[in-house]
């Protein structure tokens, strides 16, 4: 690997370390976003009669909707920490590789979101009484879907950041774009829980395609977004 490529990964590690350190100290994701996800799981139980087994059947969809909503909050938080004290300008002035900044911010969001998903999986196992079968598909689908979500989320978070309408603009921009992740994640989970992993692997293929496409687009297109003041 050439020197520029190495520097990009080093920059990514620096940015990811910075964001995770802020999270470790502020514990916003742990104290606010994780409880929010738990509340959403409760709300689904109120909406769908728990005695009739709807919750178990709908688990894949409910799981991914909860993840999508939580992604919005994690991404918003990721850019809120840059908004204070002109963090965005400082980030630009450091001269870090824009692709590295993108990868770093996405990696930090990935770590937070992946931990949240583990918690959510435990939540649906306990509260919805869903037995988690076909775990290889579940794990691969989750990793691929989460990569796609954080890559798209990091892009749209940067696009909405600094605008007065950012809180309302981010969901409108982000949610339709990740429709393939919602469909792919839900279908892969449904197939795995039904015990038909062949079908599940096919959906994993779609999720991986989405993830690769958005990571590549993010690395290419993040530079013009860092130009803003």
């Amino acid at each position: 690997m050439d020197r520029g490529g190495l520097l990009m990964w080093r920059d990514a590690l620096l940015v990811a370390g910075k964001d995770l350190r802020i999270e470790f100290r502020s514990k916003i994701a742990l104290n606010q976003i994780a409880p929010f996800a738990l509340v959403v799981l409760l709300l689904f139980a109120f909406a769908l009669d728990p005695d009739r087994g709807f919750l178990g059947e709908a688990t894949p969809g409910l799981f991914w909707i909860t993840v999508l909503l939580s992604t919005l909050l994690v991404v918003q938080r990721s850019y809120a920490v840059e908004a204070a004290d002109s963090g965005r300008d400082s980030l630009r002035l450091t001269g870090l590789d824009p692709a590295g900044v993108f990868l770093g911010k996405a990696a930090a969001v990935f770590v937070v979101l992946a931990l949240l998903e583990v918690g959510l999986a435990a939540g649906v196992r306990l509260m919805y009484d869903t037995s988690l079968r076909g775990w290889p598909v579940l794990v691969v689908a989750s990793l691929a879907a989460t990569t796609g979500l954080v890559a798209a989320g990091t892009m749209y978070g940067a696009l909405a950041a600094g605008l007065r309408a950012r809180e309302t603009l981010l969901p409108l921009l982000f949610l339709p774009v990740v429709a393939p992740v919602m469909i792919g994640g839900t279908r892969a989970f449904a197939a795995a829980l039904d015990g038909s992993s062949g079908e599940g692997w096919r959906w994993c293929g779609l999720l991986i395609t989405f993830a690769v496409a958005y990571v590549a687009l993010g690395m290419l297109l993040f530079e013009p977004l860092l130009e803003d003041s």
Partner: peptide, 19 residues
């Protein structure tokens, strides 16, 4: 950037809804 991301997303959405 949004225009480009949206246009790039169309084939992926197409593929996912077809399946």
């Amino acid at each position: 950037v949004i225009g480009l991301l949206a246009a790039a997303d169309v084939p992926l959405i197409r593929m996912s809804v077809d399946w």
